[in-house]
Design a protein around this nucleic acid. Structure first.
Lengths: 205, 205
DNA sequence: CTCCAAATGTTAGTGACTACCAAGTTGGTA
DNA sequence: TACCAACTTGGTAGTCACTAACATTTGGAG
């Protein structure tokens, strides 16, 4: 399910999807979310409005859908089970942020910043900022392996995920307000240590 | 602001508003929320679609807008400041529920039940079940009087309100699932005592 | 090469919601 | 009582998010 060879069709599909979302975020920031129609986005991306809807069920999803969830989920699954849950989740968040913001400035980092600022400044989107939470919830539960049978373990996983996401949210808001001048991974680490103590991420230092 | 004499104009306005909302909730329950158009509601209420939108900005508001918030707020403000915050809020909730469900069955109680069941069973509405929370938040802060200057007092008020609303939510869900057979005030009291101990509402017993 | 399925486009439509203008009512006031 | 201003409503036309149905092209597997 994860290591499928990238067929040409899937590649094209990913390209279209990426183009649509990039142009959407750009237009939303330039003209405002409400002042930009889905048709505008379609024109800018060089596709028909129908294609936009086939890739993103609603206009909100143009901003909300992300690949980061899967990125973080993979890192959680790959992290050693000997660490604490919060340590594994938090570490995955920091790692993912490092990977995303560390590349050349014109790349994913800038897009992530624009997307975050858009989500925070647009009322309709702000309310759904944590909607993708379920992706991480599932990843954490999956990472637990066979412990899923234990209800307590599942509850602990959900609690840990929620807490980590709250820290992530804090860091993202700060990062967006700072216009990306601070380093996102450090902000996340700060928020995590503020909540869980200095030694949460010790495994990585 | 509160004791205005009900002029004829305001009375008519309240009547149309009430008629629209009553027919809306009835139709939504009969045919489903999505399968009922605003035009259908307008027809049933004997007004034009424009009039519906003037009274209720969005279709969701046809279900969400209520007078209960104000009812509870008044009771909170009138309650003695010597009681605990949770006691005052909880007592107001129980009192309001008693007033609403105690009347003749064809009246407000039945409407409240239908409205609650609708909100719980409709995904688009369920997410906004606690949207009117701010009404109570304001009422509680107002009831605090001059303590508003104290940030701690405001935080305590918000925490107490949230906790009481969670209990109210639990009670409402149970009431709706029970199809109104249980007594709503008792369900609320149960949920409150489960969270805050047997003596929360003692002042009233 | 052939055939299937995925991806896109086109068209037509539904329905929530808004802007603008016209007409009738109400409530206070000269 | 007569009148004016504000309120309430209706109608028309339009925008825009979103859907359904059908036709067309193109990548992939046998």
């Amino acid at each position: 399910m994860a290591g499928q060879q990238p067929t040409l069709r899937a590649q094209r599909r990913a390209e279209t999807q990426h183009a649509i979302q990039t142009h959407a975020v750009r237009l939303f920031r330039e003209r405002g979310y409400d002042a930009t129609t889905v048709a505008d986005v379609a024109d800018a991306a060089g596709v028909s409005p129908m294609t936009v809807y086939r890739h993103f069920p609603t206009k909100e999803d143009l901003v909300l859908v992300d690949q980061i969830g899967a990125l973080v989920a993979d890192r959680i699954a790959a992290s050693p089970a000997t660490r604490t849950l919060v340590g594994r989740i938090g570490g995955a968040l920091v790692d993912a942020a490092t990977a995303l913001t560390g590349e050349d400035p014109e790349s994913e980092g800038k897009f992530l910043l624009a997307r975050t600022q858009l989500m925070i400044s647009t009322p309709a989107l702000r309310a759904r900022h944590l909607d993708n939470q379920y992706l991480l919830q599932r990843a954490v539960v999956d990472a637990l392996g066979d412990d899923v049978a234990d209800p307590d373990a599942v509850f602990r996983a959900q609690a840990a995920t929620s807490a980590c996401l709250a820290a992530l949210h804090t860091a993202l808001v700060r990062w967006a307000e700072d216009d990306g001048r601070s380093a996102l991974p450090e902000l996340i680490a700060q928020a995590l240590t503020a909540s869980f103590g200095d030694d949460v991420l010790d495994h990585r230092r």
